[in-house]
């Protein structure tokens, strides 16, 4: 009798695990990122970007803080990177020490970049940011210089980033700009942090827009 009694919860757990669609059909945002069809490698630069955008929004907006903190120790450098980025944007000051540790010890520059970027948004660990300015990677040095500049300012650079993510993004709006069609409206911030809406100038004058990267 006792033996059967003990077996019931085990059997129930097994049945529930098999019948529950939650885990298989609704993976956590970080799990989705880990299983991207086209991971964020250079070979995939032109494919799968829409999924990467959507999953990044999901991670920043809705991943559990505990999962993100655990993600800093994930085997995948891509997961460590996105977890570091999300924790900075979410303003999780409890993660500052773990982020600083990544800046100092992570073997992957792509992770150190995101970690130091987040320390800049959090305005924490100035000594580690200063150290990162001498990192062996140019990319880390570059981001560290930006983070050091953010530290000196009283402006909150993090909150507008979080708000921009919270505004969300609709899958059916990705890549909709088409030559010959009305230019899609968008919102952005001016370089001094003021809101800007393209529609305030659309249809009034010719417009030239360049979507840039920092060095190009």
């Amino acid at each position: 009798m006792t033996k059967h009694f003990l077996c019931v919860p085990v059997m129930l757990s097994a049945v529930l695990a098999l019948s529950s669609p939650g885990r298989a059909e609704n993976p956590s945002p970080l799990e989705s990122y880990r299983n991207l069809k086209y991971p964020p490698t250079r070979e995939n630069s032109d494919r799968g970007w829409q999924e990467r955008v959507q999953v990044e929004f999901d991670i920043v907006n809705s991943a559990e803080l505990g999962a993100l903190q655990a993600g800093l120790k994930d085997q995948s450098p891509f997961v460590r990177s996105i977890a570091a980025r999300a924790l900075g944007i979410r303003g999780d000051k409890d993660s500052a020490e773990a982020l600083a540790e990544l800046v100092k010890t992570d073997p992957e520059a792509m992770v150190r970049v995101r970690a130091v970027e987040s320390l800049g948004l959090l305005k924490m660990q100035p000594a580690v940011i200063a150290l990162a300015k001498k990192d062996k990677s140019d990319a880390v040095q570059w981001v560290a210089r930006m983070a050091a500049g953010q530290l000196k300012s009283e402006t909150d650079f993090r909150e507008p980033v979080q708000k921009a993510y919270e505004a969300g993004i609709k899958p059916d709006k990705l890549g909709v700009a088409r030559v010959g069609q009305p230019a899609p409206d968008f919102t952005a911030l001016t370089s001094d942090g003021k809101p800007f809406k393209l529609s305030t100038v659309l249809g009034r004058k010719p417009i030239l827009i360049y979507f840039a990267v920092f060095d190009g």
């Binding site: 964020p40 490698t41 250079r42 995939n44 630069s45 032109d46 970007w49 829409q50 990467r52 955008v53 990044e56 929004f57 920043v60 891509f78 990177s81 520059a109 792509m110 970049v113 995101r114 990677s137 140019d138 990319a139 880390v140 570059w142 507008p160 980033v161 921009a164 993510y165 505004a167 993004i169 709006k173 990705l174 890549g175 909709v176 700009a177 899609p184 968008f186 919102t187 952005a188 911030l189 001016t190 370089s191 942090g193 800007f196 393209l198 030239l208 827009i209 360049y210 979507f211 990267v213």
Partner: peptide, 28 residues
């Protein structure tokens, strides 16, 4: 020109230029 910050990349995604991948050591 007027420099605009698109911190979440929403406008970039709308215009189809978002990529979010690693080139060398840096995120693009």
């Amino acid at each position: 020109g007027t420099a605009l910050s698109d911190p979440a990349g929403s406008a970039s995604a709308l215009y189809g230029v978002s990529r979010k991948y690693v080139r060398g050591e840096a995120w693009v």
